[in-house]
Structures are given as C-alpha cells and as structure tokens.
Write a protein that binds this DNA or RNA. Structure first.
Lengths: 153, 153
DNA sequence: CATAATTAGATAGCATGCTATGTATTGCAT
DNA sequence: ATGCAATACATAGCATGCTATCTAATTATG
C-alpha cells in the first residue's frame, strides 16, 4: 500500500497553499493586513456595504469563520458594521478610509506574490495551471452544494 | 486597480486546499484521524522511529506545528515517543499498532479524495495539474531555503 | 578544557478554518 | 393573526499553521 505524496493533488495543493500564504503574509503584513483580511477586502473593494451572508457566499468560507475575521477587521480599523436598515438580524459591513487606501498596495503585493511563485513556469503553463485549478474548484463547489441539498431531505 | 480572484493562483490554491481538506476530513474522521495526522503518518509508515526534526524537514511545516501535531497524535494513541539513544535532546517517534492498522484504509480514503476531486479533468489534465503543482512547490521550497540562507549572514 | 554557538524540543500567543449550538428576527402557511 | 421554519449572526471549542521565545543538550572553537 503505497502513496506518493509528491504525486498527490491534495497533498501538493495543501503544501502550495501554505507556501502562498507565507509569501502573501510577508508582503501584506507591513500594510497591517492578514491574508484572510485581504481576501475579504477584495470583495468589499468591489462592492461595499455587504452583509456577512453575502461575504460568506462570495468567499466560500463558513459563516463562523467570516464572523471571526470581521471581528478582527473591525478591531484593526478596516471595517465598521452598522445595522441593516430592513432586517434587524443583519449588519452591513462598510470599509473604512484606511481599508480603501490599502487597495492599490495590497493588490500590488498579491500580484507580485503570484508572479514570483509562478516564475518557474512558462506563461502558457501558468495559464494552464490557473485554468485547471479554476475548473476543479468550480466543479467541487458545485458538487458540494448538490450534496448538501441532498442531505436536507 | 483590479484583481480577478478567479484567475489568481494563490487565491485558487487556497480555496482548493480548503476543499481538499474538507473532503479528506470527511473520509478519515471515521478512522479517528485528522488531516495533519494523516500527513504525518504517511512519513512514519515509510520509516518508523523518526525524530521531530526529521518529520519537520520531510513535511515542510514549522517545528512548533509538528510538536503540537505529535502531542495530539500521542493523545489519540497513534504514536509513542521515546528518548533518543544517542542524543538526550531528541525523542524518537514510534507508531502504535493502531496507527499501523490504519495505513491501508487511510491511504484508500486519500486516494479516493484525489480521484473524486480530479474527476472533472481528463487523465492527461490530471497529470498536467499534478506536474505543475509539483514544480511550483519544489521551486518555491528551494527559493525559500536560499532566502533563509541569505538572511543568516 | 571552557565557553560560545548551534541544535532539539516545548510553550505561549495569534490567525484561519471548521462544526455545533444558541439567540433574535423574519417569513410562510395555516 | 399565530405559530413554526428558516435566516442572520454570535459564540464555544477544536485543529492547523505561524512566529517568537525558552530550556536543555550537544558541538565547535578558542
């Protein structure tokens, strides 16, 4: 019973994700940002005033994870939360000026992490890798949602 | 200043790693295993009686991370730790019978996670993806080690 | 040989992620 | 209109991962 971890997609993906996270952390920590905060800001830079539920569905993390990330972001002065005007259960998440100002440098940092990490690949290979990753992620999200739908019955 | 997360290797890798981890967790939790424990067992199944330092270098996690994982594995009856005969600082990690017995079913579970997740890809595409991931991981580890070497001076 | 530098490991403190649960509100269906 | 199900969010508890720091032991060096 053998298992070659260096030919295992799951193993390699886990390892690569840690390497990416480490690199990103190094580049955005000077901005006062952590990786999950950056990910969340990517959505808020696109459209401000989202609810937690909307962020959860866009980023595909669990609601509890997002709640904690938002608490840390509020602590760090990146967001404010205000009551939703039409739904007293919900709160809207707003960017602070500080978070708005970080958009350009943070995205620049993320871009440079991607280029550095993919440096060993040819341009066509980079596209190939990104395309394959996107397809697997997309299919897996779909499959998971179908499975959860099933489980409801 | 735009950033398309669905074309970002770092973003996709992080997302895919979470999807893989979730799938693996679901399959090995019934065996009483967690993902990081499985990863560690992969090394110990190959060669028993390793030190923590040896596990750290093979799995490329930080020493503190491995120390905690080993503590949980000892708690769960997967390993025992005994003093190193030639170095009183070190301890050797040994598999228990329970951990040995899990080898076949756990590897079977991991294999099935990989096949399920890569199901949307053709066989050649799967090989391509695994090969590209392996190259990026390998290059990045090398670069990181070089950078650390540099930082020593 | 004595001391300094290195090495092995443990521990503290934090960020992300998860599951499971609790609370308040909303909305639907009778 | 009421009463139950669904929804939005918070919280507790745990696993992984990290950096930073501490102790003890070993190795290297003067």
């Amino acid at each position: 019973m053998d298992f070659d971890k260096l030919r295992s997609a799951g193993y390699l993906t886990n390892h690569l994700a840690r390497l990416f996270a480490h690199a990103l952390h190094g580049r955005i920590a000077p901005l006062g940002l952590a990786p999950a905060q950056f990910m969340t800001l990517l959505e808020l830079w696109e459209s401000d005033a989202l609810t937690q539920v909307e962020l959860v569905s866009r980023l595909d993390v669990e609601q509890a994870t997002m709640a904690n990330t938002l608490t840390r972001m509020e602590r760090d002065g990146l967001i404010r939360r205000a009551p939703h005007p039409d739904d007293r259960r919900a709160r809207l998440v707003f960017l602070t000026d500080r978070a708005r100002a970080l958009r350009t440098p943070a995205i620049e940092a993320a871009r440079s992490v991607n280029s550095d990490m993919l440096e060993p690949l040819d341009p066509e290979e980079r596209d190939m890798l990104v395309g394959l990753l996107a397809r697997v992620v997309s299919a897996s999200r779909t499959a998971r949602r179908a499975a959860e739908k099933d489980a409801e019955e």
